[in-house]
Design a protein around this nucleic acid. Structure first.
Lengths: 214, 214
DNA sequence: CGAATGGTTGATTGTGATCAATTCCCGTGG
DNA sequence: CCACGGGAATTGATCACAATCAACCATTCG
């Protein structure tokens, strides 16, 4: 029973604002507050979502109480398409989020939509494989270094903000928050990065980090 | 530098038999001997493949010499489709294999093919996520139990053969061969399975194994 | 200002990696 | 058919790294 369980739903006081138009079928733009659930694993997969702004985690809750984050969705990503009838993962807002709600295309009727969907699926596949690569082996340092480099896609933007908590990172990398903290500290001591605050950091030695992950 | 490096290519003495017909473009059926490479990571992704018989591993080789297996393909699986121009993974025959070589569909020209491709991609995505779930966390026992249960898709066929080596399993689960061996031994001692030979086993307590993975 | 949440740090333990021998298969050739 | 050889697998001893348990800081928010 890990600290992951503490990640409680805050669904009580109506955090989900209604669509920002009177005709939801025309502008299905939704907003979600941090830690709010967009959809749940096992629920009927009626909609797909396109993330406009914010960060979303795709995760799964295990019987023993631990949580596993399988993917972080960034703006532009489409998520929630499934081979079957049910969502395979829960989707939750990490930060405040704006999403577009999309109808699942009927592939038999609209084969053209399949081309787009295909692109989404392939990109999701690449991401899932990259994640598996990260987890597959290697020390905490290798995983965390890979994670940080993946996160900073655009290179020259040297100051970067971590939108997620240590617990999120830990559940994504299959480590504990203590190990995340210590490993970050180690990177700092080695002069590879600088922690401005706990959530803002500057990568000083990109090469060095890259050398770690192999 | 792990024992994975010992996994040497045996590409010297022409193991790849030619297509079994005089007109390869009509019946592109290929055979591969164990450990033979079907395609290599980084190579130009000109073809897709459908596995007819045998077992294929999709893997990646790291700079430090270790190997990571990301997926095992079973008969019926289609593999080798990519979002980009290059293969993201190497594909190697684990056992003797028969594969169909397929042309990459031109999605712009043939949107109907996109529907099929979409199905393949979604199935591959599900597999990749299942793999990430397996790796994400949990003890060696949890990983191995999950692996064995996944492997035995058809339930009542109680005697099952492991087509791959311990090294393959280790590289798939992010563990070492010693740990695989010890964990299997532990399962045997707990009466959960019986090892007829190193490669043939019988699951005695399916429930127990399932209870482990969570 | 005080509570709460998130993050860091320290001490200890446990699990799996590593190093090192054997043993077991299984195919091969005498 | 049996002996042999070599890769695969098991087993043992030790070590290293990350999990766990437990305080302790720092920020934010009411």
């Amino acid at each position: 029973m890990s600290a992951s369980m503490m990640q409680e739903r805050k669904s009580g006081p109506a955090l989900a604002r209604p669509p920002q138009t009177a005709r939801p079928e025309v502008q299905p733009v939704l907003s979600f507050a941090p830690d709010e659930t967009i959809f749940r694993e096992g629920g009927e997969a009626r909609w797909m979502y396109k993330l406009v702004d914010g960060l979303v985690r795709g995760c799964r809750f295990h019987a023993d109480g631990r949580r596993q984050i399988e993917v972080f969705h960034k703006p532009g990503d489409v998520f929630g398409f499934e081979p079957g009838l049910e969502y395979g993962l829960s989707a939750e807002a990490v930060t405040a989020c704006t999403v577009l709600r999309l109808a699942r295309p009927d592939l038999a009727r609209d084969p053209h939509a399949a081309v787009r969907l295909c692109g989404y699926a392939m990109r999701a596949l690449a991401a899932a494989q990259a994640h598996a690569r990260l987890l597959g082996r290697g020390s905490a340092g290798q995983r965390l270094a890979g994670f940080l480099l993946d996160l900073q896609a655009e290179p020259r933007q040297e100051l970067m903000e971590l939108p997620m908590t240590r617990q999120d990172i830990a559940d994504y990398l299959g480590l504990t928050i203590e190990t995340i903290s210590r490993t970050l500290g180690q990177f700092v001591r080695q002069g590879m990065l600088h922690l401005v605050t706990a959530r803002k950091l500057r990568i000083l030695d990109r090469e060095g980090l890259a050398a770690l992950c192999g």
